[in-house]
Each structure stands twice: as C-alpha cells, then as structure tokens.
C-alpha cells in the first residue's frame, strides 16, 4: 500500500483563468500556493477543457479593458462555455471582482453591477459579515463573522430587482455583506452603493460564488492580513469532505 500517490490525488486542484486584461491572476494563483493541500495552474481564456480541476477561479482585473461593460466581452471567451458546463456539473467556481462581473454578465449569477455611487475607484480594507457560512466557499468562517478584506474597483455597485432580491434572501444566496466593524450593515459601511450592502452572492445550488472584495489579497499577514484565507480553506475543506 503506497501512501504517496494517494496524497497527490488528494491535492485540491485550482485553475485560474487568464483573460486578456486579468491582473489578479498571479495573486490568486499565489494565494492558493500558500495552502499545502492545494495546487493551482493557469488556464488560458481560449482553452476549452477543465480536466481534473476541483475549482475554477475567475480572477480580478480589467478583462478586455472593461471596455463596454466590465465582464461583458470576457463572458464570450471560449473557456466560459467550459466553465458553464463545469458549474452545471456541480464544479466549484469563484469569481473575484472582475471575475464576479463576468459571472454576472454570463448569467451564472443573478444581478448586475454598475458604477460606484461615488463614481471613483476605491481601494481599501472593508469589513464583511459572513451571511451564509454553509457554502463551499465560507464553511470555515462562522455565521455572522466579521472579516477584513480589501476592495479595489470602480464598478462594484451591485443591483438586482425586487423579486430577485427577495429570491436571494429566501435562498440564502447573499453570502457576504459590507458592514461596519461591529457587524452592522449600515449605509455608512457601504463603500459603493450596492443594494442591501451586498458584497457577494452565490447561485441557488451554492457552487458558484462571486464577490467584489479580494480574499486573495489577505492571505499573508506580511501584506495586510489573513482574513481571506478562510475562503480558500473552505473550498479545500469542502472538496476534501466530498471525496471522503
């Protein structure tokens, strides 16, 4: 009985998509690399196969320059067909910032994003309240936990119509909300005007998650914090659990 190959097959495999204009691809890749149980490889936007992957990351950046609308052009990349199939088969997909915008444009997540209410790019740490700690992306956090994660976007102002919002609430699809340090989702704590302070949502099945904040930027205390590690740890945990 050899243990080594088993260990290798247990590695949770992430794929990080590079669209033209992606600029957080390396950050996501490197964040995964800080977990012993995980490995990441890059995927090119023209690739069509996601063989052997456990989780796909659509990273932040300015795919296609964010020209027209953020994410509007990237969603037609060949790889997005594969990502759509992968998600339909239950694969885990996480979109961060521009990746979230791409998921919204492609219809894999409900809602839309428009320009920040203050019309300016904003980069700073914000507080997030974990609204649903049962998803594959948040199971290592506690329900209601407040975490500090940075945002960096010009277009992060989440919108959905009233029935859509009711449906999100009903199915616990609002995963993280902007809040103050004590955990209250106040207007003052909302950095971009997002409806109901929504910072991130998942699909009804729970295997596709998108958020504007950047968990990959806070995976090392040397560069500002480690509160984002929980997202990756949750993914690794849920994949590992599902295998056993």
């Amino acid at each position: 009985m050899s243990t080594l190959p088993q260990t290798e097959t247990r590695t949770v495999r992430f794929g990080v998509v590079i669209f033209p204009g992606s600029n957080c691809d390396a950050d996501s890749h490197d964040a995964v690399g800080t977990f012993a149980a995980a490995a990441a490889r890059y995927l090119w936007h023209k690739d069509t196969g996601l063989d052997g992957l456990d989780c796909v990351i659509l990273p932040g950046g300015f795919s296609y320059g964010d020209y027209l609308r953020s994410g509007a052009i990237a969603r037609f990349s060949p790889i997005m067909e594969a990502v759509t199939r992968f998600a339909a088969d239950g694969g885990l997909v996480i979109g961060i910032c521009n990746g979230f915008q791409i998921l919204l444009e492609s219809g894999l997540l409900p809602g839309a994003i428009h320009r920040n209410q203050a019309l300016k790019f904003v980069c700073r740490l914000v507080s997030l309240r974990v609204e649903n700690a049962t998803t594959p992306f948040t199971n290592k956090y506690n329900q209601g936990q407040v975490i500090r994660v940075p945002i960096a976007h010009m277009e992060g102002n989440y919108f959905i119509d009233a029935p859509g919002l009711a449906s999100l609430e009903q199915h616990k699809q609002i995963v993280v909300r902007y809040c103050d340090e004590s955990g209250s989702a106040t207007k003052e704590a909302n950095p971009n005007g997002s409806l109901a302070n929504i910072a991130g949502v998942c699909n009804r099945e729970g295997n596709v998650f998108g958020l504007m904040p950047h968990p990959e930027r806070v995976c090392d205390p040397v560069v500002g914090g480690a509160d984002g590690r929980g997202v990756f740890a949750s993914i690794i945990n849920s994949i590992t659990q599902a295998r056993t």
């Binding site: 980069c123 960096a152 995976c219 560069v223 500002g224």
Partner: peptide
C-alpha cells in the same frame, strides 16, 4: 488620493 489607486494588487504591499 491613494484610495483611488489600487495600491495592493500583486500583493507585495508590506505597508499601507
């Protein structure tokens, strides 16, 4: 000013 700049991308920022 600096909140309008992405000062964290590439995740090497050891100071704010």
């Amino acid at each position: 000013v600096w909140q309008q700049y992405d000062h964290m991308v590439q995740t090497n920022n050891a100071l704010w």
